[in-house]
């Protein structure tokens, strides 16, 4: 595999849940060493897209290729083999609450490899060191702050040295310091491990600093894409509204409704 070939490719992917079309005609790709951001308002289908990539959902049409091979129609075993090469950071960390920090990170290692305990220990401490929490190894998840929990979850996500990292809203609910720590870690880990990353977020300023390419989604469709510089200077009305956080614009303040005056009963009686 050449380094220029995309690690992950989505080709005209459509997904609907019942009659509700969640994603329409999404095409994007990520290369090794690249961080792609997926931005868009809440409910625009970003998290669904991550679940499609992880194989937890199947698209109705289109193709998803990981390392050049289609992930659709693969066997249960193939799917699980593929997931070992992916790491995912969940919105609130999703740490196992009955295990301490050390055992959380050791979990994927112990599940997949019969390693001697001293090797597990070395590997876990290396991962913990990478996120700066070697000293918290014996703490339980409920003793951690939100930012620390997110870093532990990150260490767990990279425990199997994945090729592709998926980040589901990694910045949600963090204070500014924790937020920039996480952002730096994402960038550093991506460069150090040579992975490709997909970052689902709606935190514009922080993510524009670290990503290589941005996709904009709205109501299940890709509406704009480009490098961070393109995005910052975009004249597209939707992107402009989003990047500059304007309350009204192409994304309206009001949800579609009946005429205001008639709802209040002030309309002329017919």
């Amino acid at each position: 595999m050449t380094s220029s070939a995309p690690l992950l490719e989505l080709d005209h992917v459509c997904f609907s849940y019942g009659k509700l079309a969640l994603l329409q005609d999404i095409s994007l790709h990520v290369k090794r060493g690249q961080i792609a951001a997926l931005m868009g308002g809440s409910g625009s289908g970003k998290t669904t897209l991550l679940r499609l990539i992880g194989g937890q959902l199947k698209p109705q049409s289109g193709d998803i290729r990981f390392r050049g091979k289609s992930t659709l129609g693969q066997s249960h075993a193939d799917q699980y083999a593929m997931r070992k090469q992916m790491g995912m950071l969940f919105q609130f960390g999703a740490l196992f609450t009955d295990l301490n920090v050390f055992d959380n990170i050791a979990f994927p290692l112990r599940e997949h490899f019969q390693l001697p305990e001293h090797m597990v220990k070395d590997l876990v401490l290396m991962k913990l060191h990478a996120v700066g929490l070697r000293g918290a190894a014996r703490m339980m998840p409920h003793e951690l702050s939100g930012g620390m929990a997110r870093r532990v979850a990150l260490a767990r996500a990279i425990a199997l040295d994945p090729l592709l990292m998926l980040y589901d809203e990694p910045f949600t609910g963090l204070d500014p310091i924790s937020l920039s720590i996480i952002a730096n870690l994402i960038k550093e880990l991506n460069d150090a491990l040579g992975t490709g990353s997909i970052l689902v977020t709606h935190n514009i300023p922080e993510s524009l600093k670290i990503v290589d390419y941005v996709y904009f989604m709205s109501a299940g469709k890709l509406v704009a894409e480009g490098t961070p510089a393109d995005i910052s200077n975009s004249s597209d009305a939707f992107v402009h509204q989003f990047v500059h956080a304007e309350p009204d614009g192409p994304v309206p303040f009001h949800i579609a409704a009946n005429d205001y005056s008639s709802d209040l009963g002030l309309g002329a009686k017919q």
Partner: peptide, 22 residues
């Protein structure tokens, strides 16, 4: 149920560990 609500089961799936088995 709480492991499901806090996405622990999905996290396990993404680590290629089947939650029904584990």
């Amino acid at each position: 149920g709480l492991m499901k609500a806090t996405e622990q089961l999905r996290a396990m799936e993404m680590m290629a560990v089947e939650p029904v088995a584990r």
